[in-house]
């Protein structure tokens, strides 16, 4: 992939000692910003200024996307390894927040795993020099490490990216720059992902597999790529999470609620218009980000048909809106 698909240089660094990452892990949470109105561009930038003095990055098209500087959290913990013993992970996790169109908030925690450069824990400043890299002691099999991470529960037995991504959401939502008014009651969606990273032949494309968990609003993604693909994979998972949240919100929250409201003679127009005006324009698959992203996205689409499903839901919302306009509910 080309480096131009990244927005920032905040992706996990290649470690100093030249060890290539074997795995990339991450978790993305997506929810609505707790503010009555959508945030202006400058308000979004101010909200994402989580680290004073570090630049916030901003892209205006096709949707306005504002990304906070990376936050760094130190860890030294057991890894939850499937099928075999344990491993120990030492290093730092990166996390950032993303605001899309002043409405949607995402919290992402991510990390690249490499083999340890020493048998023991090293000085802290060694790990600070490679933010976002975790060294794994005890050389467990990478596939077992990956399965262990993806199947870990709450509270986490191993590396807890869930708490880190949850914390960044909580901190942003608590900001005094927001009015803390809930514009639409919806859930928070979680996407947990893991990527195996290995040098790929030149023509090879990254691959993706998505599993919907039986836990509501929880998806698991497995990816494949070369170590340099990691920023692209992180972005893909964020985009998938955003679109998945949009689809779920429209399909499972807005449409059923509007149907009930109509059946019970209550006015559903507010949430219908919210969906049409605020959410529908956010459906913008990230295929413009380069051929690899396009390939990944289209592979995902060909299985899930998300775009078609979303279109169908928005059509349904327009129908409901027209129906309400023609025959307003009695309590309207």
């Amino acid at each position: 992939m080309s480096p131009s698909t990244t927005e920032r240089d905040g992706g996990p660094a290649v470690p100093d000692d030249g060890a290539q990452p074997l795995l990339g892990f991450g978790e993305v949470r997506t929810c609505l910003i707790q503010n009555l109105a959508g945030l202006s561009p400058s308000a979004s930038v101010a909200l994402m200024q989580l680290t004073p003095g570090s630049p916030v990055s901003k892209v205006d098209r096709p949707t306005r996307r504002v990304v906070s500087p990376e936050q760094v959290t130190g860890v030294d913990c057991r890894l939850h390894v499937a099928r075999e013993g344990r491993g120990r992970a030492i290093g730092t996790v990166l996390s950032h927040a993303v605001v899309t169109n002043g409405r949607i908030l995402q919290g992402t925690a991510h990390v690249a795993l490499t083999s340890a450069t020493a048998k023991e824990r090293r000085e802290w400043r060694h790990y600070l020099r490679q933010p976002g890299v975790i060294e794994v002691l005890g050389s467990p099999n990478p596939h077992n490490v990956m399965d262990g991470y993806l199947t870990d529960v709450s509270p986490a037995r191993g590396l807890d990216l869930a708490s880190i991504s949850d914390r960044i959401i909580g901190e942003v939502q608590q900001s005094n720059r927001l009015d803390h008014t809930t514009a639409l009651r919806t859930g928070t969606a979680v996407v947990r992902w893991a990527a195996t990273l290995a040098p790929q032949p030149p023509q090879a494309k990254p691959t993706v597999g998505i599993t919907k968990s039986d836990v509501p609003n929880f998806h698991v993604i497995r990816l494949n790529g070369s170590p340099e693909d990691l920023p692209l994979l992180i972005r893909f998972c964020e985009e998938f999470a955003l679109h998945e949240w949009l689809l779920t919100t429209v399909q499972d929250v807005i449409v059923p609620r509007a149907e009930t409201d109509i059946a019970r003679d209550r006015d559903p127009l507010d949430s219908l218009l919210f969906a049409l005006n605020e959410l529908a324009p956010l459906w913008m698959p990230p295929t413009h980000l380069g051929p690899d992203m396009k390939a990944l996205w289209e592979a995902m689409e060909s299985r899930t048909h998300y775009s078609r499903l979303f279109e169908r839901q928005t059509a349904r919302i327009r129908d409901l809106r027209d129906q309400v306009k023609i025959r307003p509910p009695r309590r309207y």
Partner: peptide, 16 residues
């Protein structure tokens, strides 16, 4: 208290 406020805010996003 801040953690408690965070919980109430989070639940208010999801629950009436």
């Amino acid at each position: 208290p801040a953690r408690c406020a965070q919980l109430f805010l989070r639940l208010d996003r999801e629950f009436d």
